[in-house]
């Protein structure tokens, strides 16, 4: 029987993958995608909890999260494009103009 914990385990693992991606990736775009993974892990947990709690609050929250994520991605990508135009790179390691 599939229960709450099954879903949460999937969500936790997905979150972990996202964290791993953020830490490992040197490419801003892929880093950003890993962040999306993390958000989605949260969404899964929210939906699972929502089902478990027999309410719709969690689903409403997921709705907000998806909307916000869309807006965030739009702005973020515009920013990354502008950065690329200026510096010709999207490497995380190349963001070093302002070191001590």
């Amino acid at each position: 029987m599939i229960g709450l914990v099954h879903y949460l385990v999937v969500s936790a693992l997905l979150f972990g993958l996202g964290v791993l991606g953020v830490l490992l990736q040197r490419n801003l775009l892929v880093t950003y995608m890993s962040l999306e993974l993390m958000l989605n892990a949260a969404n899964l947990a929210l939906v699972a909890f929502s089902r478990f709690n027999r309410g719709l609050d969690g689903q409403v929250m997921v709705f907000f999260v998806i909307t916000v994520a869309a807006a965030e991605v739009a702005v973020g990508l515009a920013l990354i494009v502008a950065l690329f135009r200026r510096k010709q790179t999207v490497g995380v390691d190349d963001l070093t103009d302002m070191k001590l």
């Binding site: 801003l28 949260a42 947990a45 929210l46 699972a48 909890f49 999260v65 973020g76 302002m98």
Partner: peptide, 25 residues
């Protein structure tokens, strides 16, 4: 500056959402 804030801000958001999910749970 914008890019750094973006990545770390989004990371924080992800944690925040995940946290909210568990608080809700």
């Amino acid at each position: 500056a914008g890019a750094k804030y973006l990545i770390l801000g989004a990371l924080a958001s992800a944690f925040l959402v995940y946290g909210i999910a568990f608080v809700y749970g």
